[in-house]
Amino acid sequence: MNNLESNNIPALVKSWIGQIVITIQHTVTVERGLWINFCASVFDSNPLYWDDAVARDHTGTVIAPPAMLPGWGSQPEWYPGKQGHSLRPMELHFLLKEAFGLPNGIVTSVELEFHEPVRAGDEVSVEQVLRDVGEPRMTRLGPGRKWTINVIYRRQDKVLLGLQTIEFLAYRRH
């Protein structure tokens, strides 16, 4: 853990460290038509995503590409009766950018662990935990900070689908 006392971290942000700050419940039901678009974007012909007969021997049913796991927890940009903005894919990251006044941010490192595969009909929930916040630093892009967020993905029956660790660099341009 970093030296929180000398880092000028707002009390609200300090209270988030180690806690589940954002919970997102079912936003979109997983379906093959959506994951086929992702396969097409990377020309992925793995039959586990496309071919019921091949998938039967390995996964029982066709499954979604694992790299899509985080996307199943993103709220739609619009839905009937929507008030205000949607929760963004990494809402906690955006709350931190706002808290520190750092308007720009990039992902520098991401790690995903894949557990039970995601299948059509699944509903994915997300928990975002702030793991740590780095010291202020001068980056090539401008003054900024790094922080790390852990994300837990579960199915509607609480089965673990995956774990994610993301390191962000947020900055204000020179």
Partner: peptide, 8 residues
């Protein structure tokens, strides 16, 4: 890729 992964 961004749209299919629901990253706006």
């Amino acid at each position: 890729g961004a749209v299919a992964s629901r990253d706006w």
